Simulated assay, not measured.
Amino acid sequence: MASGAVIGDGNVTSIPEGFRHWTFLGAPLTPNGLNGGAAGFPEFHHVYIHPDALAEFELTGVFPEGTTIVKELVLMHEGGYEDGSRDEPSGRGFFAKSFNGIDMMVKDSDRFADTNGWGFFNFGHHEPPYAETATAASAAECASCHADNATTEMVFGKFYPILGQN
């Protein structure tokens, strides 16, 4: 499996060890200050993919079975402006502060046929420690949004220039 995730009976039994050292895809941000105070995910989304899965995707244009993509939510430092931004030596902007949750998607076309071949998992939307296991989310929880909006299979490739989907 090109992922590092351990799957059994529909559960991911662990967050892949060392995922923060995988290939960093990007860090989309949808802050509350730009979304009427109610963004669904107001944190940075630090997104990682196992290097072997990325290498195969770059060769074939298809994510291999077992691909695991980890999204770690990262809170921002409190801002002094209405949009949530703040002034720092590098200029006005948004700046990462602390970890606040883990979501993960795993490609397994047999196990997750009902959600276009991908399983979606949440290990908690809070500061660490995160849950040790997670059960696959229902289609309504994650997969339907990915199916309606993703640009490559179930992945939001347009947000990650490294995937060449802009």
Rank of each mutant, 00 (worst) to 15 (best):
A150Q: 08
G84R: 03
P89K: 02
E88Y: 06
S138K: 13
T115W: 02
A147C: 02
A134C: 09
G119N: 03
M76A: 10
Y130C: 07
H77Y: 12
A150P: 08
N116F: 11
D87K: 09
T133V: 05
D110T: 08
P89E: 13
R111T: 14
F94T: 09
G124D: 04
G93W: 06
F123T: 08
N116C: 12
H146G: 00
D108N: 10
T151S: 15
G119S: 01
E141M: 07
S90D: 13
S138N: 08
G79P: 11
G84T: 07
K97Q: 14
F120T: 01
F95E: 03
S138L: 10
E82Y: 13
G93F: 02
E82N: 12
F112R: 00
G79F: 09
A143L: 06
G119D: 03
P129N: 01
N100E: 11
T152N: 15
G93P: 08
D114L: 07
C142Q: 11
T152C: 13
C145I: 01
G80N: 14
F94K: 11
A143W: 08
D103G: 09
T152R: 15
G117M: 06
C142T: 01
D108Q: 03
F94W: 15
N149P: 04
G79M: 13
T135P: 00
D103C: 07
D110L: 02
F123N: 07
A96T: 01
G117R: 12
E127M: 11
A96L: 04
N122P: 00
D148C: 02
W118G: 02
V106H: 05
D110I: 10
G80F: 07
A134T: 06
G80W: 14
T135K: 12
E141Y: 06
A137E: 13
F95M: 03
F95V: 10
D108K: 03
E141T: 10
A150T: 09
N149R: 14
G79E: 14
S144K: 11
M104S: 01
N100A: 14
H146Y: 02
E127F: 09
T115C: 02
E88D: 12
G117E: 07
R111S: 12
G91I: 04
E127K: 13
Y130L: 09
K97V: 02
H126P: 07
A139F: 14
N149Y: 14
A139Y: 14
E88A: 15
D83N: 15
A136V: 15
H146L: 05
E88I: 04
A140H: 06
F99C: 06
F121T: 04
E132F: 03
S109I: 05
T152Y: 09
K107E: 03
A147R: 09
E78N: 08
E141G: 00
A131P: 00
I102L: 05
D114T: 07
F99A: 15
M105L: 13
G93E: 02
K97Y: 12
R86P: 01
A147G: 09
G101L: 12
D83R: 09
